[in-house]
């Protein structure tokens, strides 16, 4: 055995620095977002911003947890629910509802109905992926990604076809769902999403040791006593609920999940999900806050946080694919 090269011994970063700096930075960003240019208006501006902050918090955490969990299940660093068509299916369901119910959908989609309907659609999509793609093409990242992107294109085109059949007024409603926005934050919605998120996070947290073993790959996980089909089904169901929460509260986030999951894995002092899941959540919320701050304070609302997030994360996705082409 050759002795250990010196740089390997220090392979682990300073865990404390990351675990203190990231939450501290997050608190700072949140304070800046709530207070900057608010004129300390506690009557309207600050309560409104607090509600948006809650939406970013819930949505960001849901995006991070779903993406990191999904990447572990798919066994790679590139596939996320957004790439595998979850959000496209979500938008198609909403478009179909607008078409079927017309203005009646306004009441349904505007209120508590959205999350329930997207939840059903997401669970169905998870089940379908589990039964088909994950069984047959597991491990073949590039094939899965191709299928995911083609599915997304097909479903998006179908959604556009539906959009052409609906009236301009209904189209405006639909457009509201198709973009990242924090304006959907109303107390009742925040409470229901928050409760659901708390429940799913609790369930997911109990499976952290299982996720760590699943990261070793299917065969090693089975050899270590994991009931693989059962865990895959259960965790994909949790992912579906998380995507439903984020998609109905803040809209489709496209490549944000890939960015968040990879940054979390890069800055975490170790590979365990006990660290990557909370760090990912912090990075996601921080990213949304930063984008909203830049859109509001620098661009004076002439661009949206959603566009900025997609711009940053889309570029990252491209860079990641080009860099990892050889060994993902």
């Amino acid at each position: 055995m050759s002795p250990l090269p010196p740089e390997t011994a220090a392979g682990r970063r300073h865990p404390l620095a990351v675990l203190i700096l990231v939450p501290a930075g997050l608190v700072l960003l949140a304070a800046l977002y709530v207070l900057a240019g608010s004129g300390f208006d506690f009557g309207y501006v600050i309560p409104r911003r607090l509600m948006k902050l809650a939406a970013m918090g819930i949505g960001g955490v849901a995006v991070a947890l779903s993406s990191i969990t999904f990447q572990t299940l798919a066994g790679n660093r590139i596939l996320t629910p957004a790439v595998m068509g979850y959000e496209a299916v979500c938008l198609m369901t909403q478009a179909l509802l607008v078409l079927a119910l017309g203005t009646g959908s306004l009441a349904l989609l505007g209120g508590q109905g959205t999350i329930l309907i997207t939840l059903v659609a997401m669970l169905a999509w998870s089940l379908l992926l589990d039964q088909t793609l994950f069984r047959r093409a597991a491990g073949d990242v590039w094939f899965l990604m191709l299928v995911g992107i083609v599915l997304t294109m097909v479903i998006t085109t179908f959604t556009q076809f539906i959009q052409l059949r609906i009236s301009p007024g209904e189209f405006a409603i639909f457009q509201g769902f198709a973009q990242v926005s924090f304006d959907r934050a109303e107390p009742l919605r925040l409470i229901s999403s928050g409760l659901m998120l708390a429940l799913v996070t609790g369930l997911l947290w109990r499976r952290v040791p299982v996720l760590d073993v699943l990261a070793l790959g299917r065969e090693q996980a089975i050899s270590l006593g994991i009931d693989h089909p059962r865990e895959l089904r259960l965790l994909l169901a949790l992912v579906a609920v998380l995507v439903a929460i984020s998609a109905s509260l803040i809209g489709p986030t496209a490549f944000m999940g890939i960015f968040v999951a990879n940054i979390a894995r890069a800055i975490a002092p170790g590979p365990g999900h006990r660290l990557t899941l909370p760090l990912g959540a912090a990075v996601a919320v921080g990213l949304l806050l930063l984008a909203e701050l830049i859109a509001g304070q620098i661009f004076d609302h002439r661009t949206t946080a959603g566009i900025l997030v997609n711009l940053i994360c889309g570029a990252w996705f491209l860079a990641l694919i080009l860099r990892r082409r050889s060994f993902a």
Binding site: I222, S223, G225
Partner: peptide
Amino acid sequence: PGDFARQVATLRQSPAIDLRLTVEDLVAF
């Protein structure tokens, strides 16, 4: 599955995992 894993351990060709695990972390699994 849990009982089986206490009776039979399997090693296939070591997977090309992309995890920053130490030898000790891996053995602990």
